[in-house]
Design a protein around this nucleic acid. Structure first.
Lengths: 108, 108
DNA sequence: CTAATACTTGGCATTTTTGCCAAATAGTAC
DNA sequence: GTACTATTTGGCAAAAATGCCAAGTATTAG
């Protein structure tokens, strides 16, 4: 238990953060940002959606605290704020691997 | 890059797994399951929702590969299938801490 | 068989999310 | 000032998620 005494876990705030990751386009953007900051135009190309859609996805992640932005002339560059979220992908892979294993061997 | 050669990352499948965690009640259940398996009735008490609602939440997590179930008489016991998802909570905490820090110090 | 318990499923209304288009904003260049 | 580019915001319709109630299934007990 990493939680402070008398401080019940706020699952709502946590869920909001996780929800901000829970979209294919947003995951793709987070993955791309592992290399370093990118402008909205770069991210638009990566996810292949309307710029306004990408902008709104970025707002969701920004509000959740996953990314931060920096204005530079006409461009707005986004970057990861807490890179550890990428480590989580290893675990997500493990879930996929487990599923694959169970599916092929009928264990569970 | 933990990804195999010529195997583009499937962000949709990953997003489905993460989405299955992205709900306060489901997070609370996953947290409770860290202690070991629990029946639906236990989980119902923990989240305080209708049993049918809890059952549907569990189905979402089961389909995503997060939990597995085991029938024992009248009871169905659920357990974590890939415990590493709980480690991710440390990172989620970090996002919350970062947000708190920036909010109070006006850095970013 | 009936009764009781634990859970799942069907249905449905409410809410939230998503994604496009159009319009607005902000910055650069002339 | 105008023209152009990058991004955000407003609006809205379509899709998905949520949660309750009612009904169904499955198991145990008598």
């Amino acid at each position: 238990m990493r939680q402070k005494i008398n401080n019940p876990i706020n699952f709502e705030r946590r869920a909001r953060i996780i929800k901000a990751m829970a979209h294919p386009s947003r995951l793709a953007m987070l993955h791309a940002l592992a290399d370093g900051e990118k402008c909205v135009c770069d991210l638009r190309e990566i996810v292949g959606a309307d710029v306004s859609t990408v902008s709104k996805h970025l707002l969701v992640m920004k509000r959740a605290g996953l990314v931060a932005d920096r204005k530079d002339g006409l461009w707005v560059h986004y970057r990861l704020r807490v890179p550890c979220i990428l480590d989580f992908m290893t675990c997500v892979e493990a879930v996929l691997d487990e599923s694959r294993e169970k599916a092929c061997c009928n264990i569970g």
